[in-house]
Design a protein around this nucleic acid. Structure first.
Lengths: 192, 192
DNA sequence: ACGTTATGTAAGCATAGACTTACACCATGG
DNA sequence: CCATGGTGTAAGTCTATGCTTACATAACGT
């Protein structure tokens, strides 16, 4: 028998690097050569681990989302039962540290690629569902309860996180203000 | 004397087409050949009107913003004095029809280009100032008054418009809900 | 020890895309 | 009517980039 297949481990090692490159550069500018450089390997290594660049990007989307979700779930598990407000305050400080929004923006520029769009939509739907659970719980409703009012609040809260990133990216939203945006406007939206 | 220079008029004719292409395709995928095709000319014509592709994009940013602002100002001038709430209701129906958000997302993917970033930030700052005036007026404050509370509300409202576009783009925000998002959550934020 | 097969290196290919050049044409003002 | 210079067409250059191939090397199980 030959050497065992370590592709899975290799993917797990390189994916964070790949994801960060995509988040930082966007889809087009993250060339395969650049990805390989950052991983400290040659391009064909990447092509042995994923069939094409599109697959690398889709894997990166999933990865970034999974990491973010892990963090939030750990936070909720640790910190007693503050729930949604605690998440808001955490995000105000650690805004987009996993590159969630940058990957989202990068992906939104590729929505004519049906597979990328589908992966993005699916991942974001999971994200949405997670937040929805928190908002519903905050309002004393069952996980899927609370009706359209909860949905509206969820979207509005996601809007806060999104615009906070845009504002920071453009250097238009001063840090002092940014730190207040999610907690203060978030609480307002949470309580309706 | 030879023929008079019609460059200015030509730019004005082609810019809407160029802007739409950038909004639809993003910066990278809107190739100069594609831009020229849509304009019904050859590439070098574009290069006679703008020094390079970057300049075309920056012109497109300004154009899209100017068109949007014109529309909103006309709306406010016409429709009595409903002000901010009327804008929210208008945008709920005509969401992003000038490609404002798509250009923004496209530009956010190019923020390592300092000139593009600067143009984007400057344009968005104007947008921000316009909305701020409306929100301040709604709260009975002078144009620049109202303090940080107004700033927070402004950012949160911009978040609504932004996330409404993201949700639509990904097919995750049903039209029925989307039409309620800006008016209902917007009013909540407007009134604090 | 040995054959099998993953892993790594290096070079190459084909295409696309930003930008240029050469040139024909024609509207304009004197 | 004619010279000037703006307008349009066609082709070309050069680089970047997605992806492949050929080959050397180094484990692993028997």
């Amino acid at each position: 028998m030959p050497r065992p297949d370590r592709s899975e481990e290799r993917r797990a090692e390189l994916l964070p690097v790949v994801a960060e490159a995509f988040a930082e550069l966007g889809y087009r500018r993250a060339s395969t050569a650049e990805l390989a450089d950052r991983c400290g390997v040659r391009v064909n290594i990447l092509y042995r681990l994923w069939p094409d660049k599109q697959a690398m990007f889709i894997a990166a989307i999933r990865h970034v989302f999974d990491r973010s979700l892990e963090t939030w779930e750990a936070l909720l598990a640790d910190g007693g039962d503050a729930g949604a407000p605690e998440l808001l305050r955490y995000e105000a400080k650690h805004l987009g540290e996993h590159g969630f929004y940058r990957i989202l923006f990068a992906g939104l520029g590729e929505t004519d690629d049906p597979e990328i769009k589908a992966a993005l939509a699916e991942t974001y739907a999971d994200f949405l569902a997670f937040i929805r659970t928190q908002v519903a719980a905050h309002r004393g409703a069952p996980p899927r309860g609370g009706g359209a009012a909860v949905d509206l609040a969820v979207w509005a809260i996601l809007g806060l996180g999104t615009i906070a990133n845009v504002g920071r990216e453009l250097g238009l939203l001063p840090p002092r203000l940014r730190e207040r945006l999610l907690p203060e406007m978030g609480d307002l939206l949470l309580d309706g």
